[in-house]
Design a protein around this nucleic acid. Structure first.
Length: 317
RNA sequence: GCCUCGGUAGCUCAGUUGGUAGAGCAAGGGACUGAAAAUCCCUGUGUCGGUGGUUCAAGUCCACUCUGAGGCA
């Protein structure tokens, strides 16, 4: 009945909800370290557009999992994130502290708070390229293939969901296993930690207004120059890192596909949609204690968050 | 003051010879296990400016009225 799993505190929420600042404040008060759960802040050189905290914003609090990958380096993955983050967490636990995971990438957070077990098969780029080509040539062929090789997985995937179809075929062919089993598990496997989760929320209108303001602030901070610097390196525009909000739309502008104004509008629109998807992901996790930031004063919010995140600790100490 | 063209979904608009309305965009909901800020699926939310009239039946025809743009005086 008594679980002895080490606890982790998690602060999550959609983009522009104020996680970064609150996270630092919490870490300072509790004297702990932060583990970022952000799929874009892992990239070196993508600072303004990813809203990566500056040295000043970090306020002396140690942040893990920032700047751990290169834009054109080996393909990063959720599995890689899980490995690195667990290392960082173990290190923090070794110091007798509770790590505070802060971020908005749902899959990454789930990789730490649930039993998500990525199979031991790394991606096979050649196979992926081959499958992608087959689908491009004859749409629908991947789903038909999967139907033959792994009907259970095929039943879970839409014929248009090319990325997952490729992955399912990859898993089947390389390991003989089935993605269907993973889907069915729903991440319910063994989680090495006891997570304490707090989510930041607010009325949708306010969130959208904050997104608008933040994109404008990024532009004022030099987002265009940062993106142009990366653009100038001539990387393949299809790199995963370059699909990031802000960069992707500005690259379209640099290539002459649209005006700067149009790119900025697209960034704001796509960021809104992203926030909506984040909320969809988080909503299904009943473990999250939601704090509506409009219901608290800044210090009240900090108190409430610390309270929720610490309860477990008090109980176990 | 007169004339013309508009007023239909959050926005831009379409609505055949009268049968209580539909596209794009925006938006909302959902999925998600090695690309996840990615990828994919679903959804029309409406006193058709208002009032009265003709009609079995009005977004559609008639009258009046409110309102926007333009034109003529």
């Amino acid at each position: 009945m008594i679980e002895n799993k080490p606890s982790i505190a998690v602060l999550l929420g959609p983009t522009a909800s104020g996680k970064t600042a609150l996270g630092v404040a919490i870490a300072k008060r509790l004297g702990i370290e932060i583990v970022s759960a952000d799929s874009i802040q892992i990239y070196r050189g993508m600072d303004i557009g990813s809203a990566k905290p500056t040295e000043e914003e970090m306020g002396g609090v140690t942040h893990h999992l920032l700047d751990v990958a290169d834009i054109n380096g080996p393909k990063f993955s959720a599995a890689e994130y899980q490995r690195l983050a667990r290392e960082a967490i173990d290190l923090i636990h070794a110091q007798g502290k509770t790590p505070l995971v802060v971020g908005g990438t749902g899959l990454y957070i789930s990789a730490l708070t649930s039993g998500l077990d990525f199979t031991q098969t790394a991606g096979d780029e050649a196979l992926r390229a081959q499958l992608a080509a087959a689908e491009a040539q004859r749409p629908g062929s991947l789903h038909a293939l999967l139907q033959k090789e792994d009907p259970a997985a095929a039943a879970r995937l839409h014929p248009h969901d090319t990325k997952r179809l490729i992955r399912a075929l990859e898993v089947k062919r390389l390991t003989g296993g089935s993605m269907a089993a993973d889907f069915a598990a729903g991440g319910a496997g063994e989680c090495p930690y006891a997570p304490r989760m707090v989510g930041l929320t607010m009325p949708r209108e306010l969130l959208y207004a904050r997104i608008e303001q933040r994109v404008d602030a990024m532009l004022a901070q030099g987002l265009v120059a940062e993106a142009r610097g990366i653009w100038a390196r001539g990387y393949d525009r299809n790199l995963p890192a370059l699909q990031a909000l802000g960069y992707k739309q500005l690259f379209a502008h640099f290539s002459g596909a649209c005006s700067l104004d149009e790119a900025v509008e697209a960034i704001k629109r796509e960021t809104r949609r992203f926030a909506k998807r984040q909320l969809t992901w988080f909503r299904r996790d009943e473990r999250i204690a939601w704090l509506d930031i409009t219901q608290y004063s800044p210090s009240g919010l900090l108190d409430a968050a610390c309270d929720l995140l610490q309860t477990e600790k008090e109980g176990s100490l």
